[in-house]
């Protein structure tokens, strides 16, 4: 993708994602008829969001250019530890997500920019 060129495909993807936002946020109140998901799907639903997040972020943390990093001298690993320490130190209360970002970046940026990890 070249800088600042808008292409139709990306715009269509963005419109599609908007439709997904509407669909997922309103799925159970679109129809006025009573209906239910199958039991197993209802139970499965509670594990899917966290699985989706983990599947997206874990490769971004432990892989570089499609290969497992295989060593510990990587700024990302320490950033994740710092973020986790903040989140669980706060027991998920208050601005825990923001704190995870800030604590993680405070570790990540010096290690990445100054130390070169």
């Amino acid at each position: 993708m070249t800088a600042d060129q808008t292409d139709l495909w990306t715009v269509l993807v963005i419109l599609g994602l908007t439709a997904i936002t509407v669909l997922t946020r309103t799925l159970f109140f679109i129809s006025s008829k009573p209906w239910h998901l199958p039991q197993w799907a209802q139970r499965g639903l509670q594990y899917a969001p966290i699985a989706a997040l983990a599947a997206v972020i874990v490769p971004e943390i432990v892989m570089t250019h499609g290969a497992f990093i295989g060593h510990w001298q990587d700024a990302r690993l320490f950033a994740v530890l710092a973020g986790a320490a903040w989140f669980f130190g706060r027991r998920g209360q208050g601005q825990a997500v923001l704190g995870t970002i800030v604590a993680g970046m405070l570790v990540y940026l010096p290690l990445h920019l100054l130390w070169g990890w």
Binding site: I50, V58, V80, F87
Partner: peptide, 29 residues
């Protein structure tokens, strides 16, 4: 990624959800 990590932590409210995250992360790699 750290923001998504924070959301992931906030969703991890039961042992089986941790299993879900661990298995999905490992399988994705």
């Amino acid at each position: 990624i750290l923001a998504l990590l924070g959301i992931l932590f906030s969703l991890a409210t039961s042992p089986l959800r941790w299993v879900s995250a661990g298995v999905a992360g490992a399988a994705a790699v």
